[in-house]
Design a protein around this nucleic acid. Structure first.
Lengths: 184, 184
DNA sequence: CGAAAATAATTAGGAACTTTACCATATTTG
DNA sequence: CAAATATGGTAAAGTTCCTAATTATTTTCG
């Protein structure tokens, strides 16, 4: 079943080795290891062609949310919640994007504590330039999956995420720590 | 289809917004965004309960490879290749694990350039303690997926990884940069 | 109303991970 | 043996992320 060396190391011995443990479930074990591994491979490949555009996974996420999110921009606070990072971190990310002119901050007229981050023309132009490259590369990278497989994978990823999010509290892994520490 | 706000933002407008772009494929776009998002949620949840054991995604990967990898340990160089990180990075990771007594380095008797990293008793004991917790938590986190779904997901993740790895070169995202810079 | 609590964002300080570039040592090759 | 190659390590730097403390603003409620 495995197709490369790292997967093979995990696979070969986990079957005989696992049963010593309580809670052992070889399928879950393989799934977790392969999920992390696949995400490393995928994000390394995409990161490689993002870098020349001055984008990283995080800054791309911010720009995509601002572009596809609600009109009028988003509160930094809200961005942080969606991206699962602390407010301190989102401040830094927006600083970075602001320095490059892709985003601006505006004080919310209704609540002056709030800063709304908006994507600028330059930010949109950057996405306009990057996204076709991204889509083209995704088509290449994922070419061995059929459309049907992509659809199934997308559905399972969503289901997995919802499950993990719903049950994270049950294993002491509730929410972003940034929102835990303040609130109790 | 989407089950949360971040996914919804992407989903709602990408359909109408995407067609402006060359290469647009809404399925691939959703797949990429959801893959990254799911991996953030999953790794945040697992990271939360790993931390008290002094483990991170990277150090856990190293220990798992040393435990399940070949007898006699692995070359640092080989570890780096498997984990897709530079030699400088693997040096640091092994330093860290060595400081904590979970790993030791031994000079290879056949080739004295080579250091072999081995997992120690303490490292094994740490895994012995952590893995049952990990498996228990995985069972909780992924409880909304059926066994069949887990099997399908595992298969698709492997297929996706092989595809990405095979075609990474075709979009200028060949190998770990560490192995590119030195070798040409 | 006005004091206390809550909320939004920032700053400061620091840890972890990662990279590139360079260096030291050991091996292989011609 | 000299040159090229291979393995590891060190140094400097950047990114991402965190916690804790601070500032400004708004909300709550006695």
């Amino acid at each position: 079943m495995p197709h490369d060396r790292r997967d093979a190391y995990y696979h070969e011995r986990i079957q005989e080795f696992g049963p010593c443990y309580a809670n052992f479930n070889p399928l879950l074990a393989q799934l977790a290891l392969n999920f992390v591994y696949t995400s490393e491979v995928f994000q390394q490949a995409t990161g490689r062609y993002m870098a020349p555009f001055g984008l990283s996974k995080s800054t791309f996420n911010v720009l995509m949310l601002l572009r596809h999110g609600p009109e009028g921009g988003m509160q930094l606070h809200e961005l942080g919640e969606l991206l699962l990072v602390s407010r301190a971190n989102i401040t830094g990310l927006v600083d970075h994007l602001e320095r490059e002119g892709c985003v601006n901050r505006a004080i919310d007229s209704a609540d002056r504590r709030v800063r709304r981050a908006n994507i600028t023309k330059k930010g949109k132009a950057l996405l306009d330039e990057f996204i076709p490259v991204h889509f083209g590369n995704l088509k290449i990278l994922l070419q061995d999956l059929s459309g049907e497989e992509e659809k199934v994978l997308l559905g399972l990823l969503r289901k997995m995420r919802v499950s993990v999010a719903a049950h994270a509290e049950a294993c002491g892994a509730a929410r972003s720590p940034a929102y835990r520490t303040d609130q109790e």
